[in-house]
Each structure stands twice: as structure tokens, then as C-alpha cells.
Write a protein that binds this DNA or RNA. Sequence first.
RNA 1: GUGGCUGUAGCUCAAUGGCAGAGCACCUGACUGUGGAUCAGGUGGUUGUGGGUUCGACCCCCAUCAGCCACCCCA
Length: 423
Amino acid sequence: MEKIIPSVKGTRDFYPEEMAIRSWLYQTLREVSESFGYQEYDGPFLEKIDLYAAKSGEELVKEQAFVFPDRGGDLITLRPELTPSLARMVAQRQRQLTFPLRWWSFGPFWRYERPQKGRTREFFQWNIDLIGANSPESDAELVAICVAFFKKTGLKPDQVGVFVNDRRLMDAELENLRITNPEMKKQVFRLIDRRDKMRPEDWAAYAIEVGLSVDQFEGLKAILDNKELWKNSPDMQRFFEALRAMGADEYVHYNPQVIRGLEYYTGTVFEAYDLARDGRAILGGGHYDNLVADVGGEPLPGVGFAMGDVMIGLVLQKYGCLPPLGISPADVLVTVFDETLLIESQKAARQFREMGLKTIGYTEVVRLPRQLKFADRMNIRFVAIVGPDEAAAGQVTVKDLVRGEQFTTTVLDAGELIKKMLA
RNA sequence: GUGGCUGUAGCUCAAUGGCAGAGCACCUGACUGUGGAUCAGGUGGUUGUGGGUUCGACCCCCAUCAGCCACCCCA
């Protein structure tokens, strides 16, 4: 045998078991998204590099995207995120679309990163946005959607949580500490983001390096340790009140340390975690002032989030929330007795299918035990045997592999009985 | 991009520098029109790849590829 050419680093093969999970996830996301009245959309998987160069940092495109020249010499990128494509799609029809826009998508993305737990180079992502809305209640709606997803999958509020903050609130709090320089604020945001990843003494040293005075540093720590800080913001108060009204507050926590790396978030920011702090963020999102800022067009505020399939898959597996495996591809297997009866078996299989039963007709002439074993392995509950006796009488013998019982009757009767037993 | 751990049968893993093994799975039979269970037998390997050291390498060294993990980053 020739050597098997290995798959591309960081990609996954989806065998039927994994594919079933992916399809289930897609279906669940669809149901949750649609229950809030969101419409499905998608952009191209290939985009010109310029689309990202305009908006994202140089680093993203140069180091974390798959980029290659096409035959005409243009640089093409396998999309690393959906937002720029969304911005273009919205800007192109800004005058025709009806706002507020509620759109969702689930599709593949690529990032040239080093694979590790919860991170692959090829992954699927749920993107959902409410565009052309600017209220705390619209921000709350998106958080309520991700809570609805958790509820639907069976994840409990003591297993996962959504942590929320508001950048404008943080901005105001920093102003109170006389941190007013925009560049300085950016650095302090980064400092806040790093707090949990560094030892306290290193973090303090970093704070001094950034240029904070001792008073400012103490003030910052007080802010970050204040779980009631949200009460200083009327918008956050409205946000939490809306969440309660939507029945989502159980899962949602205020955390002044949530900042998010993305520069385009301007208001509410949030991310969901396994409460055991196991692994990376499950999802992240927030409020932005202008989706189409880099594409031109009227300023368009909105709120949205993205969730990758890899991390949520790990969390769902950890908490036993994945759908059961070993689901059968068929209800009935029609066996083949010998070459002379091959056609009879195929006719019977067709009749079963026409009655709405998922039916596999064996297409090889092999010994019966082998065919029964096949049915057993494939979790096919019913085996219909068409032997010389049955063929002569216009009947089939149906064996129920779960109960170990069997009966002989016409195909039509057998089909009805099987349907009853499956119900 | 940086660092650590690991690559042996289809799978999970053994093997002081001295004959490459086990369990599970698979195949055959016991059982010529009936799956699972049991028993008996059997197939299965360029030890990731390429070099080096050695009388001799799964084992030591170098490189490389892949997987996992942590950094970095997280759109």
C-alpha cells in the first residue's frame, strides 16, 4: 500500500460521528438564532487581502492568515473572520436593507496559528450580529441569545457563564484616575487584560512600566476588584434589567476585567467561559459604533459575537451535553440470499423506502451471518430476509435485532409493523 | 514566532543498547437460512521520516515531520 498523504496541519477529518456532531451544532445554532428572528447569510470563503488590510492590523494578515497568489497574481486570503465581509455586504446595500438587521452565519474560517487545545487552523464559527441598533437592550439581546444557546444544549449556570463589561464605563473610570491620554488608555486596557495571566508582582511592575503612578495603580486595582462597578453606569443598569426580563441573568456576571483585544469594540464587551476556567474563551463579542467605518457609508452601530466550534465542542463534551452517538443510518437492512434473489431483495428495499423507512439494500452476495453482523455493527434494528421460501410466498422475514424476535409477512405489512415498532 | 512532552500492529500501550510483545479489534472455524456471547486457530510491523554513534539502536545523538500542551496572539 502506498503511503497515506497526511492531512494539512491543524485540520480535522470529520468522520460520520464527528460530522453528526457538527450538523447537530449547526442545527442547534439555527434554531436558537431563528427563535430570535435572525436571518442566515454567508460571505465568500475567499477574499482579497485588501479587505483585511484595510481594517485589521498588519499582523493579522501577515502572520495569521492563509494568503496565496492566484493565477492572475492577486493575493487571496482564506477568510480569518467574517466581520469585514459582513461590513462590505451591509455597506453595498446600506440604502436597501431594513434596519435593525438581525443576521447570523455558521461556516469555516482559517488562521495560520500553532494548533493547541481549543484551537485549530481550520474551524467553524457562529457569527451573529444585530446591526443598526444602539441601545443597552440590543446588547442584552445578543447576550440573551448566547444564554439561550447554553440552555438549549443543557449547559448549566454553574458550568458556564457570560462575563460582561462596558468600555465606556471603564473609560470614565480611567478618566477619574486622570488617565486621559488615548495611547495611555490603550496601554492600560492591555494591562487590565493581562492581569490574570501574570503574577501580581510582575503585573505591578508592568503597571509602573506603562507609566501609572502609585495612586493610579491602587485606584485601578480598586476598580478591577469592584464587582458593583456596573452600578456607576446607567446603560449597564438598563442592560442587566433587560437581561432579567429576558430570563438570561442567571448565566451573566459583571466583571470589570473583561476588555477584549479587539479595538473596534466601543461599548459593551462580553465573553463566555467554562466557570472552571478550563481552556480558552467559548465566545466573545461586544458593541461597536460603526461596522462600515473602513468601507465608507453612514455610521452603523451594532452588537455581535462569534463562537468557534472547537472550544464549545470541548465544553459540551466535558459536561456531557453532546447528542448521543451510534445513531443508525437506516431502519432496515434487506439481505441478499443468493444471486437469483438479488433483484427480489432490491424490490423489497424499494418498497420499504417508499413507505418512508430508511433502508439499506445489501448489494453484494455474501453469507447471511455476515449481513446480520453488518446490521448489528451499523445499529440497524431490523433485518428483512428475502429467501427462496419468502420469495415464493411474496413475503419477507423480518428480524428485530434488539428484541431477537422475528416474523414473516408481506413487505407492506412488515413495513407497517416496523414503523409502529419504531414509533 | 518561542519552549516542553510524545510518536512502536487498525486502536490503547509494553519491551536494561542484545530474537518487537500484550489486550482489544479484525479474519477463519465450531454454526451450509440468522448478529451479539463463548471456545479454538490465524492475519497483522521499514518502531513517523532522514542521517549519525555502535560489533549491534524502538532505546543514545542530530535534523525533520506530525500530535498534544504552555507561551505569543486571539479578528
